[in-house]
């Protein structure tokens, strides 16, 4: 593979913030300039070369060879290019992304893909809390792009999601899609309590109907043309919705005047 690879020199002693190190930033830099690029680390600023062996040729692809839970902000603010992490990352990975591709081979910490508006995140493992959610003090969560979680998602994933697509292959923690404004989230596994609380619009696809807040109303099972349309046009949903022609439609959160929906395969 061509591109720049970062290989940690030693286990990190403090949290490292890589949020200013995206492919579009590293692309125009020479290897030497990159080595001298400073990144926040535990309240200090260190040169990248003090933390990593920096190798390769900048061409838009950035590879972090060994991940670490102390690596925060990986791919945050990315707008193009590709960033690959062979392992686990910390918090805020892909936060505010507007384009490009972020692949994470392990798990991710909290706020994965929070407030992202475009691009694509592929997470092989589990995500921490508030994946695709709004950041602290922010009104809107993920509003565009695709966030795929190969494992489980922690609490309050898709909180205040505004658009785009989140797929969770495993289970989702409590408070999934709390205050969801629009968009689509699918969950292949079990769902924790209070999913969809305060939901205004948007769709949650589930395999079985979870325990929902009191403001959700079961409208029954319906044949929906939208199901095959989504299965054909959205590759990320085709595996889940491929055989669906009918779905049980539960609308909410009506206590908040919401018109969101939970669609369960029937």
């Amino acid at each position: 593979m061509t591109g720049v690879s970062l290989k940690p020199r030693a286990p990190f002693e403090a949290r490292v913030d890589l949020s200013n190190l995206t492919p579009e930033v590293t692309g125009p830099l020479s290897l030497r300039e990159l080595e001298h690029r400073e990144v926040p680390c535990g309240g200090r600023s260190l040169k990248l070369a003090e933390l990593f062996f920096v190798e390769g040729a900048p061409d838009g692809v950035l590879l972090v060879e060994i991940g670490d839970v102390r690596l925060d902000g990986v791919g945050a603010g990315m707008s193009k290019g590709e960033l690959i992490v062979d392992g686990t990352v910390g918090a805020f990975a892909g936060r505010g992304m507007s384009g490009g591709m972020l692949r994470i081979g392990g798990d991710a910490g909290d706020f994965l893909g929070a407030e992202m508006s475009g691009g694509r995140i592929e997470l092989a493992g589990n995500a921490g809390a508030q994946a695709g959610a709004a950041g602290s003090g922010s009104r809107r969560g993920l509003s565009g792009g695709v966030l795929r979680i190969g494992g489980h998602a922690g609490p309050r994933a898709a909180e205040r999601q505004r658009g785009g697509l989140i797929t969770i292959a495993g289970d989702a923690g409590e408070g999934l899609a709390t205050g969801m404004i629009a968009g689509t989230v699918s969950v292949g596994g079990a769902i924790g309590p209070l999913a969809g609380r305060g939901m205004k619009r948007g769709t949650i696809f589930v395999m079985t109907v979870p325990e929902l807040p009191a403001g959700f109303i079961d409208t029954g099972t319906h044949e929906l043309v939208m199901l095959p349309l989504l299965a054909r046009r959205v590759p990320e949903l085709s595996a889940m919705l491929g055989g669906w022609t009918h779905a049980r439609r539960i609308v909410g959160d009506t206590l908040m005047g919401g018109q969101g929906e939970v669609l369960a395969g029937a």
């Binding site: 968009g183 769709t203 319906h222 043309v225 939208m226 349309l229 989504l230 959205v234």
Partner: peptide, 24 residues
């Protein structure tokens, strides 16, 4: 007011509840 939109890629689809079911 019961219409629902779903954006897929750059395209926006609308779902209109009708007596028969739903018009997409």
């Amino acid at each position: 007011g019961h219409q629902i939109s779903k954006k897929i890629g750059d395209k926006r689809f609308w779902r209109l509840p009708v007596m028969e079911g739903e018009f997409v």
